[in-house]
Amino acid sequence: MSGSPLLDKLRAYSLSGFFVSLGITAIILALRIPKTGFQSEYDPGPAAVPALMGLSLTLGGLYQGLLAWRHSETTSPLHLKAFWILAGGLVAYAVAMPSVGFALSTVTLVTWMATWLGSRWWMSLLFALGIVLLVQILFGQLFKVPLPQGVLGLPF
């Protein structure tokens, strides 16, 4: 995955591209913030700071692009696969929790993640049950945070 020169180029410019596109978007959206009729004439208004930040991000991003062009700053390639697997797992967890409930979704996620990172499955399962119990005691009882109940209608 580090072999392709095109990918290397993309990686080198990704930071500058991120800031420039974000900056330009911010400027465009800031200019569309509606004006109020009762705003004081001395108030620079709600759009001023966002527009200024958008401009700073654009200029700073361009400067980063210039640096990348001159020095071609390299970042080491990543095990991106692991990254996407973990990110996907977390998204699935957050999507599922409201309907599945905290206890069941957490046991599933923790068992999977700990096993994926290298522990035996039964150990992961024990660990998962322990974590759910701990969170339930701390948050549910002590901190009075209502955790999502879900399908099983468990008390947590």
């Binding site: 977390l90 967890y93 923790v110 993640m113 700990a114 990172l117 660990f127 974590i131 955790l147």
Partner: peptide, 13 residues
């Protein structure tokens, strides 16, 4: 690896 898993849960909760 267990700590990292725990961190994920505590971050979300």
């Amino acid at each position: 690896h267990l700590i990292m898993t725990g961190v994920v849960i505590f971050s979300i909760v």
